[in-house]
Every structure is written in structure tokens, then in C-alpha cells.
Write a protein that binds this DNA or RNA. Structure first.
Lengths: 215, 215
DNA sequence: CTCAAAAATGTCATTAACTGACATAATTAT
DNA sequence: ATAATTATGTCAGTTAATGACATTTTTGAG
């Protein structure tokens, strides 16, 4: 799934995020990111289209961890149960924890750094595209179906909002969260946001034909 | 509501959009945008933080027209009826039509131009913030209420998706739409997406107290 | 209307983001 | 092993973007 290049990009992403958090976006140069990453500046610009987008792999990697969990979501399990189960046997590595903290801290800077928000929104758009696949699979519908895409959009929006809200509550208001709490908030929000019945167990299709109307 | 500077920015936005559509983003320079707008390049960079963001006022101005309509949405009218009514007595100027077409054409280029999508997503985020106000007012709830913000996020996502879908259908598949059709699609999508009962007439608050739980 | 304060714009120099061209190093595959 | 491919580095060059300061335009008080 991931190659050497993606790993290198993620490493750069961590260094860039750290520098952005320490000194701000405007006060961090491409040369500094390159130096911190042990790469030439030219390579940085081959990896990324702009300075800000250096943090995108970080956003996407934490999103990917969640995506992987949703991919394993069995059809006969509710979202609440599944996410609760997932957080019980959480496979987060120490690196994942560090990355998560970087993301959370970046999210609290979006108000001050509009360029960061643009990158975050792009990452959320990628999450939305991934949700299309998950929902289409779960409901046995086409990925082109407007209602599938609408549901993906609303659910992705909910996930984004939970991430933002929890990050701000944690960093700016010092609120503490357990993994269970986050899973529960996330499940609730997804449930409220979903425009198709994806959150509860899917009735098995005993006739072996797809459940939606016409061919 | 709008000042001279915003008007100037919008004018630049139109020229920039036209150039982007004609020659592509990479092949359009800041100097060209300045020349086409009859301004110095320095002023362009005072107006905009980046080349791509030159098109944002165009996105926001069409969004603003819709926002104005939603602001006039009476509490005792459903979203479907209101939007249908709005499109009947549509106040679109010729300039509005031209701007709308520019936006629609830009939206079809997002696949090829990721930077354009980032700007579009930023504009949609602004729409989301505006929706918070509209929903909070309509339901007589706080703008900080998570459920209000969630509803704003899902509804804004639906509006964005309709815009994108209709644009692509119109430009890339030559499909024709009447204003009524668009209003109807938009109303349906908003209805499906809304996580709070905003779409149907709001029961009048006969006791003169807010309908949500505590002070 | 007048004229001074303030705000917007222009000019020019400078920085820093980003690209192209080509050489070198590292991987891959045969 | 080594040829082919691919990734990275070096360096020069372009262009997006900013700072400093002069000039014009707008605003507003008298």
C-alpha cells in the first residue's frame, strides 16, 4: 500500500509540521524544511507543490488509520459498536500517537493560518472520496450514485468537524478525552450525519440481488 | 455590505477566472492578471495571498447571492417552497449570469487543477460558517451549539456537492437545467443532508422562550 | 469648497517559492 | 554483474510574493 517515497514524504511532513508549529508558516522556509528533513530543497519541491502542502501526508496518514478501521467494519455491526470495539484493541504505535498530536495541534492553528485550513480541507476531501467506496460497498450500491456521494460528503463533514472540535477542546481548553469518548462522539456524529442507513447492521441480501431499484 | 475594495477584487477575480479557463493556472502569471485587470501587479498581491485565490471572490459572490435568499427564508415556509419561490422571482442580473457560468466552468476544471479545488473548498467552508448563523437563527439556538455546527457542515457539504454535480453534468455532459430544476435538486439535497429540523416550517414559539434546554 | 489626514495604488528593489536542465547516486531487473 | 530505470543533488533561472517608500486618491472636518 505504501512505498518508500510516501514514507519519505511523511517524514518531511512531520518535520514541516513541527517547524510550522514552532515558528509559524510564514517564518518557515523551504530550505529549513529541507535541512530538518536531511534532503535537498529540490527534493522537497519534487515531493510537494507548495510549502503548506508539506503537512498533507500527516493529515492523510491519520485519516488512513481511521479509513482502515472503517474498511473492516462488518455489515452486521453498528457504527457505535464497531468504533468502540476498534478503540478497545487499538493498534496505535507510539509514532501514531506523536502524529496524532501533531495533527491536533495543527488543527488549532487553522484560524491563524488560513493556508493550513486549505490543506486540511483538501485532506478531508480525500477522506470524502474514500467514504464513497466504503458506503458504496456497505450498501452494495454504485460509487457514482448521487445519494452515495451525498452520504459520503455529509459523513466526511461530520468526521472533520469532530476532529476540529475535539482538537480545540483538548489543546485550547485543556479538556481530556479517552479513546472511548472520542470513538463515541465520532460514532454519534456519523450517525446524525449519514443520509443513508449505513450505521446499523445491514439486512443480508438473501436473494443475491442488489437492494437498489433498477439496473 | 460591499465596499469599493471588494468590487475591485471581484473584477480581478473575473479576469483571473477567464485567463485560468483560457490558458490554465500554470500558464497564467500574476502580471497577466494585473494587466487584464488594469492594475499594477503589486496591487494584485495586496488583494490576494496567492494566484489561485484570485478566483475566490467569484465563488463567494455567487455563494452570497444564495446566502441572501436563505436569509430571507421565512420560518413558516419549507425549504422546497422557499427555493421554488426564490427562483420564480429571480433577481439575477446579466453579470450574475456571467459570473455563474464562470464558476460552473471553473468547477469542471478542479480535477485537472487541484489548486482550484482548494480554493473552492475554502469558499465552501465560508458557506458553512454562514450556514451556522442561518440555522442558529432559524432554530433559535446558539451558534456554538455542536449540533447547529454539524447541521451547517452537512448542509454546506450538500450544497457544494449539488454545485459540483450540476456543473459537471451541464458542461461535460451537455445536460440542460432550468432554474426550477436546480432549486428543486438543491432543496432535496439540503433536506436529506440536514441533521436538524430546519427544512419544514418551524413551530412558532408561543411562550416567547427559546426551545432548547437550559439557559 | 479647502485642505489636511488617511487610505489606496504604483514603482522599484529584494526575497523566497518553485522549475528546468543535467549530472550523479541508488534501485531494480535481467 | 551490469544495464536500465528511477530518485536525488547541484545550480541556474523564473516567477510568485513582500518591503520600503513615493504618489495619487479618497475622506472628512472646518
Amino acid at each position: 500500500m505504501s512505498n518508500r517515497r510516501d514514507d519519505a514524504r511523511l517524514t518531511v511532513s512531520r518535520h514541516a509540521a513541527t517547524l510550522f508549529l514552532e515558528n509559524g508558516l510564514a517564518e518557515t522556509s523551504g530550505a529549513e524544511i529541507a535541512a530538518a528533513s536531511g534532503l535537498s530543497e529540490r527534493t522537497i519541491w519534487r515531493y510537494f507543490a507548495s510549502k503548506e502542502s508539506c503537512v498533507e501526508p500527516l493529515f492523510l496518514s491519520t485519516a488512513l488509520r481511521f479509513h482502515t478501521k472503517l474498511r473492516q467494519w462488518p455489515r452486521n455491526v453498528s457504527i457505535d459498536t464497531h468504533l468502540h470495539e476498534c478503540c478497545r484493541l487499538d493498534d496505535a504505535t507510539p509514532q501514531d500517537m506523536i502524529d496524532g498530536l501533531l495533527v491536533v495541534r495543527l488543527l488549532t492553528r487553522m484560524e491563524a493560518e488560513p493556508a493550513l485550513r486549505a490543506v486540511w480541507l483538501s485532506a478531508s476531501h480525500q477522506v470524502e472520496q474514500d467514504m464513497i467506496d466504503i458506503i458504496a460497498d456497505r450498501l452494495d450500491r454504485s460509487k457514482k450514485d448521487f445519494d452515495v456521494r451525498l452520504c459520503a460528503a455529509t459523513v466526511a463533514a461530520a468526521m472533520r468537524l469532530i476532529d476540529e472540535t475535539i482538537s480545540i477542546a483538548a489543546i485550547e481548553h485543556g479538556q481530556q478525552f479517552t479513546t472511548e469518548q472520542i470513538a463515541q462522539e465520532m460514532a454519534q456524529a456519523i450517525r446524525k450525519a449519514s443520509t443513508l442507513p449505513i450505521c446499523d447492521p445491514i439486512a443480508p441480501n438473501v436473494f443475491g440481488v442488489s437492494s437498489h431499484s433498477s439496473p
